[in-house]
Design a protein around this nucleic acid. Structure first.
Length: 409
DNA sequence: TCTGGGGTCCTAGGACCC
DNA sequence: TCTGGGGTCCTAGGACCC
């Protein structure tokens, strides 16, 4: 029999917690992270105080502004601090288990298999109790040393551990004993299961399926129409079964292939404040500089460029092309511009433009001969290292009147 | 629920080859 | 000019996650 040794550690309202460390006056008051009140964007994190008013992460800032009480504080958020606290959390977590992967900025998976004897103490009722106690020690260490509240779920599989960490919030630890997974999951709404989003949820509801218990016994053909090839995996997860391996690290940029292929993509996109085709050229140029700069910094070349275009009615389409691997801004821009012309098939205002680099590969050993474009891009990167990103731009990014409208500033 | 920005993974269909 | 069938690669789109 499998024992519950897979742990999902999740930081509670992570972005809010970090903002409160940076500004203690935010403690105890309703906080919304994501943007200024009444502005654009979506909620990245909402404190428990403001959730009481119906504010949820993912909601538009505008709607959150209407729901939140007058004394609620809206903050855009400090991205660098969030990354730093995520890294510090990891160093603490690694003291407790040698097998750790970061699933996202605020979520880690740990494997405690084989650790029972190491941690055993006289007072522990059994091995499950030992692991639960150690995980509680870990969440307390994170709170004590960093000031970040955390919750954790422990179970026999990864999806079950993830669901358990959600049930444990706030600041709790929940261990799901082997054999009790299905009964723990059965009463929960289908949306609680990782892998079921808003689309699948509404399709399931149309079939009268609202809970995971109902999903487990639903007819195969009905589920297949919703989940296709995932059906078996979803049904297993709904019973509490699934991988007992922590899996791969994300971001996957450290994974290399013998031919130099690198996993992952690099993308940047921009939503226009007021849809207008007039600045599309400038935005496109700026996006290409951004992704090109990120690719060079990672030492990779892109073998594929995709242009993403969203019209004002939210209709979204993409056009992509495989190219000779490059990280030169002007090359990327030339391809992106061609793809833009292919995608611009409707006479409607543009809401969003994006550029995605894929088919990444390691850049060959620095070549002795650069072509003019490469030399220029590297010179630009050096200037930016000294004076900041916005010190230098392609002429097309700045536009004829020197505007920098694409930058959120 | 009228929707930001960064990602991952999967699938259907077409092109192309033998 | 029309005809198999399988394999593989590529592209566009969609669902999902944080």
């Amino acid at each position: 029999m499998l024992a519950p040794r897979m742990c999902c550690l999740d930081l509670d309202t992570f972005f809010v917690s970090v903002e409160r460390l940076l500004d203690p006056s935010l403690r105890g008051v309703p906080v919304v992270v994501g943007g200024r009140r009444g502005g654009r964007g979506v909620v990245t994190s909402a404190s428990y105080e403001v959730r009481a008013f119906g504010v949820r992460s993912g909601m538009s800032i505008r709607e959150a502004s209407e729901r939140a009480p007058a004394h609620a504080v809206f903050v855009p958020g400090h991205g660098d601090a969030h990354s730093e606290y995520s890294a510090r959390t990891r160093t603490i977590v690694e003291r407790f288990s040698p097998v750790v992967i970061a699933a996202s900025i605020d979520e880690h998976y740990l494997d405690f298999r084989g650790c029972e004897r190491l941690y055993r103490r006289a007072g522990d009722a059994d091995e499950d109790a030992t692991i639960a106690r150690v995980v509680r020690d870990m969440t307390q260490a994170i709170d004590r040393e960093l000031g970040l509240p955390a919750s954790a779920g422990i179970a026999t599989s990864k999806p079950m551990a993830k669901v358990a960490s959600g049930l444990a919030k706030p600041q709790g630890v929940l261990l799901v004993r082997a054999g009790t997974e299905a009964e723990t999951l059965a009463p929960l709404p289908v949306r609680k299961l990782p892998g079921i989003g808003p689309v699948s949820e509404s399709r399931l509801r149309a079939l009268g399926i609202e809970t995971l218990g109902q999903l487990v016994t639903a007819p195969e053909a009905a589920l297949r129409r919703i989940f296709g090839g995932y059906t078996a995996g979803i049904r297993r997860a709904a019973r509490g079964e699934g991988s007992d391996d922590v899996g791969r690290e994300r971001p996957a940029f450290r994974e290399y292939d013998p031919d130099g292929a690198v996993a992952g993509t690099i993308s940047n996109e921009h939503t226009f404040v007021e849809a207008s085709a007039g600045t599309a050229g400038e935005v496109l140029s700026g996006l290409c500089e951004r992704v090109g700069s990120r690719a060079r910094r990672r030492g990779v070349l892109a073998g594929h460029v995709t242009l993403k275009l969203r019209y004002s009615d939210f209709d979204t389409l993409t056009r992509g092309r495989t190219i000779a691997p490059t990280s030169v801004d002007t090359e990327l821009h030339r391809v992106a511009l061609e793809l833009y012309r292919e995608a611009r098939i409707r006479d409607l205002p543009i809401r969003l433009l994006g550029v995605v680099l894929a088919k990444l590969r390691l850049d060959a050993v620095q070549l002795p001969l650069f072509d003019a474009g490469e030399r220029r891009s590297e010179a630009v990167d050096r200037v930016r290292d000294r004076f900041g990103y916005h010190a230098v731009h392609l002429a097309t990014t700045l536009g004829s009147r020197g505007r920098r409208r694409w930058h959120d500033g």
